[in-house]
């Protein structure tokens, strides 16, 4: 029976009831919108004298990091703590994982400890999916191999929407090492779900073979793409790509696909620059581009906490089925 204090199920935000956050592909436009909308509230909270709310009191969130990523871990940790969750950090280096304990055994240990959510970063694609088979806790993917990094994509979508007021109809150029990038996979799916247009740009060796089936435009030439882009999203290029014959040299990459002052001037007036960090200045972008007034790179970092709070808030409430 519905009582005065209860909320009707259909009044819940669309993101509620999401058991896990594994990939952006699984999110509908209404769910993404709900996450971004709630993130706006959490962003306002950050400006208040007491930044903490009691919402997740009594809930335990475990940051399970098999791969170093201080910035992502700290961002999730702040997000959970501002929601008053108990946070425990479980890193592969300081735990029994390095002694050969399997992912499954680690999962069963956390299950036995009764954690409510596991934020997992793993070098193996699919590890978060596999965790969901072994634990009852909510699983949030904080980056798995080259597969997905959904909260990065969501904070990017939030940052773009914050700047332009909308996502629908924008055109985003995603430039660089799409092949090895979990950020690109997640972001492109999110942008397409939100009806933004995407052009992926890079040498064929750094684009997936089947990129033609991705529902995006593809260009190997950066310059013609610049004029029509509302957002120029630069991906990190790792130096080991050269020894693996993906590109002959950093210098050649920077010349053909790097963002420099000359290309910056060819952008339309309202266009913005984004980068998921950490940046290789001088490779995918020059220092003057990174520090340009239309670079939203610092906003991306700042918005990370609010978006992650939003995901935790929408996922962890209510009784599990």
């Amino acid at each position: 029976m519905m009582t005065q204090d209860q909320i009707a199920l259909d009044e819940r935000p669309a993101g509620a009831g999401l058991s896990h956050l594994l990939d952006v592909d699984a999110l509908g436009a209404d769910q993404i919108t709900a996450i971004l909308d709630a993130a706006r509230t959490f962003q306002q909270l950050a400006a208040r004298p007491i930044k903490k709310v009691p919402t997740l009191r009594g809930r335990t969130v475990c940051n399970l990091f098999f791969e170093d990523s201080t910035r992502t871990r700290v961002s999730f940790e702040i997000a959970a703590k501002r929601l008053s969750a108990d946070v425990l950090n479980f890193s592969a280096k300081g735990s029994s994982v390095s002694k050969g304990e399997s992912l499954k055994d680690t999962a069963l240990t956390l299950q036995a400890m009764g954690v409510d959510a596991i934020v997992v970063r793993h070098h193996a694609a699919g590890a978060p999916h596999q965790l969901t088979r072994w634990v009852d806790a909510h699983v949030l993917n904080a980056g798995d191999g080259r597969h997905q990094h959904p909260t990065q994509a969501l904070l990017d979508l939030f940052t773009i929407r914050e700047h332009f007021g909308q996502l629908d109809g924008l055109h985003v150029a995603v430039i660089g090492d799409v092949l090895h990038s979990r950020v690109a996979r997640s972001l492109v799916q999110g942008l397409r779900t939100m009806s933004a247009g995407v052009t992926v740009v890079g040498p064929p060796t750094l684009l997936p073979l089947a990129v033609g089936q991705w529902d995006v435009d593809v260009s190997h030439d950066l310059d013609p793409v610049l004029g029509k882009a509302d957002v120029v999203y630069l991906l990190r290029v790792q130096h080991e790509r050269m020894s693996e014959q993906f590109i002959p040299s950093v210098r050649e990459y920077a010349r053909l696909w790097g963002m420099d002052g000359r290309r910056l001037r060819r952008l339309s007036e309202h266009a913005v620059i984004m980068h998921p960090g950490p940046m290789n200045r001088g490779v995918e972008l020059t220092a003057d581009v990174a520090d340009a007034p239309n670079a939203l790179i610092a906003r991306q970092v700042a918005n990370g906490v609010a978006v992650r709070m939003s995901c935790l808030y929408l996922m962890l409430g209510g009784e599990r089925a």
């Binding site: 209860q6 935000p13 209510g318």
Partner: peptide
């Protein structure tokens, strides 16, 4: 009642 009811629109 967050733990019982779940998230509400903000």
């Amino acid at each position: 009642d967050y733990a019982r009811i779940g998230p509400r629109p903000l």
